[in-house]
Design a binder for these strands. Sequence first.
DNA 1: GCCGCCAGTATTTTT
DNA 2: TACTGGCGGC
Length: 781
Amino acid sequence: MSGLNGLNDEQQAAVLHTEGPLLILAGAGSGKTRTITHRIAYLIDEKGVNPWNILAITFTNKAAQEMRDRVNKLVGYGADQIWVMTFHATCIRILRRNIHLLGFDEHFTVYDADDQKTVMKDVCKKLNIDTKRYKEKTLLNEISNAKDNLVGVQEYENSVMGDSTKAPYARCYREYQETLQRSNALDFDDIICMTVRLFKEYPEVLEKYQERFKYIHVDEYQDTNYAQFELVRLLAGKYRNLCVVGDDDQSIYKFRGANIRNILDFEMHYDDATVIKLEENYRSTGYILKCANAVIRNNIGRKDKTLRTEKADGEKVKFIQCENAYEEAETICSDVRRGVRDGGSYNDYAVLYRTNAQARIIEERFVTAGIPYNVVGGVNFYARAEIKDILAYLKTIDNGTDDVALRRIINIPKRGIGATSLGKVAEFAEIRDITLYEAMTRADEIPGLGKTAYKIKAFTDMIGSFRGYLDIKNVPEMIKHITEQIGYEEYLRDNDEESADDRIANIDELITKAVVYDEQKNAENEIADLTGFLEEVALVSDIDGANFEDGRVLLMTLHSAKGLEFPNVYIAGMEDGLFPGYMSVSSDSDDDLEEERRLAYVGITRAEEHLTLLCAKQRMLRGEMQYNAISRFVKEIPSEYLDGYIPKSRNSYIDRTDDRRLSGGYGDSYGSGYGDSYGAGYDRGSVSRSYDTGRKAGEAVGKATLKAKPYSLGLSGLKKGADTAASEPDYKVGDRVRHIKFGAGTVTAMVKETRDYKVTVDFDASGTKVMYAAFAKLVRC
DNA sequence: GCCGCCAGTATTTTT
DNA sequence: TACTGGCGGC
């Protein structure tokens, strides 16, 4: 059934508007997936559109999976004909059939960030580029930017002509691209821009797909980059039935090339576009939404909209300032425990943070408290060395031209083929313009290899024999066969006995994934070949595998949380310098700060019923103790929406004597809930007290004892910081001071920044001014 | 060719 | 603090 029941007026309008360009501005929690899936169902059931003609593009596999599931439920017949896929999966599917036109083989492999770096390192070596001056990462970034903007090698060269500092970039871009081509490999950016190139150079191919995809949907449109924008524009060029859904307020991937203008300017790109706003939020209670609105309101240049809800106000948003990160973790921990004790379930809870590094302390606390949790993200499963090793074998078998894969495994396990020999082989290959693998098969012709030639021959013979099994064995069998033949387990044990078991378990996990792949393809009557497996693996991230329903608290970055929702959400580390991050605070453009604010908006709107914002007065960051002010995003929330004490623009570092106020404030709000886990002393959180607190927590919890050490280091760091700060002012908050121009005033706030103190003074004559201490030359009076 | 030590560096990261 | 990668010694 694809009826309109259960949809509000705006959602219905979006469903019914099937012809021509349509922009759905869907606020957080406004039911956008619901709207798209109903729209697809309506197209098929009511408008008689052939499912075959419908394309729905998402960014993540997870979103694709969810959409597919929901479409399946709504559409009775032909749902499997609809393409519901990620941008990359869509493009790969198109490329597999057509990439020969661009000079690639259909068995091309996809290079991840790791592989790219390996290539770039080689490129730099070859071109004699000083990687101290031009870092691989920077070079790759520049190339990625170029590709996202569809700037090809030639065009890039032209654009930097005459700019000698940019010349190395151009040389690298060319060499990098040629290397990829020789390896029959594409990077993630290529996947998109090669497809665009294909469409532009071969209009007949484009037309085929235009005819196929008469109705196109794009999810999370605010995250598209120029290449993706262009891809969509081309595909929709003929029938113009393009429906994009997104929320400019949730654009948080600028650093990855997303261009927020794509959504902001949609009506300019498609002048006959209809715009529908979904502003009713079905997720969060009133106070949470008010907070979200209050924060995002501070961004300029956004589409005007305000989320509303018919839900009750609910509970206010909690704000808790802790002494340090350990206390912050403990606060979350005891709050979760209490919630579960009162009948809640662990999977109703999520802890969000800005940086992955923050997870550690929280994790440790959870371990010792016996709270089941899952950390989403971090190191990608497929980025682990052992997985990459096995995949490199598979890639070498599947695509003999993938030099990166081959170089990776040539000496894993150790078979006595080192850099010197490899260099000779590479040279031989270079001169003859053949692939590394081909050169290896001709090792006996290569001068100076000596006995190593036999070792190399043995290796290629082995790969050859693996290839012989391609038609006999399925993927899981193949992996097992390879690991046995190369003695991989032994290799792992010899290398590092301690981690070997974990690594072997990971290989088993890979085999499991291969089994699932095999079964799935067989069930769909499709070929379960190695190429397909490698492709799937290349496009999968960890978050896709995260289990959201096994009774665990989820820990993840704010970025990973996009698209998810939880009854109870904690956002840790609400501190200026951490969130918003240091880089965005010190950046001269407001753009970065606005992106951080959108991230805050995303975080806040994940919460359904309870939201808790936390920060710490001091925090160890990169081995250095930081004293951060409360996040400006917290301060943007009117205090009547908050439950918890916000110290009036005071700095915890300077003004530590009246901590009792803070503790009292939040003690009042939360009763005795936290007290029992801290014991005495917590209420009077002086520095030495909180040190005790930290150490006590550590001692009580075994493993975390180790963590008490950095903390004590932090204390010495604190002293040092106080002594060496060049411009330590001799006044504090509340003092009367005199300024040469503004006259007398009262200090209302002091915030320590990296170099100096930012002082806020309420001048008797001219009002409040914020200035840097060193610059202002204030005198106490 | 391999192993281990030290120095440099640090956000976020759907694919 | 903690990881990674480069270089030097065996």
